[in-house]
Amino acid sequence: MTKDQLIAKLKTIVQPYIQDEDAFNNLSEETDFINDLKINSANLVDVILDVEDEFDIRIENDDMEKMISVRAAMDVVNEKLAAK
C-alpha cells in the first residue's frame, strides 16, 4: 500500500468522529487527532478499533499509546502489516 492510499484509508476511518471540517479537509501526516480534528478522546478508541478491523491487525495498548497523530497511526499500521 502506498503512503497516499494509507492516508486515504485513515481519512475514511476518522471521518465519522471529526469535529473540525477544515482540519479534516486539509488532513496530512502532521494532523493531530485531538488538537486538530477535535476528535473526542472516547471516540479515539473507536478509531483505533476501526483501524484494527480495516487492516485486520491487533494494536496493543503500548503501541496505541503513541497514536495521537496521523503519522503515528501510519507508523503503527505499517509495522503491524509488515509483521503479518
Binding site: 471516540n43 478508541v45 483505533i48 478499533l49
Partner: peptide
C-alpha cells in the same frame, strides 16, 4: 464531562473495554 445520552455506546464493542480499563 460526559453526556450520557451522546456518549459513545462503543464500549459494548469487542476489545473496547480492554483498551480502556
Amino acid at each position: 464531562i460526559v453526556d450520557l445520552k451522546y456518549s459513545s455506546t462503543g464500549w459494548v464493542r469487542p476489545r473496547f473495554l480492554d483498551k480502556v480499563f
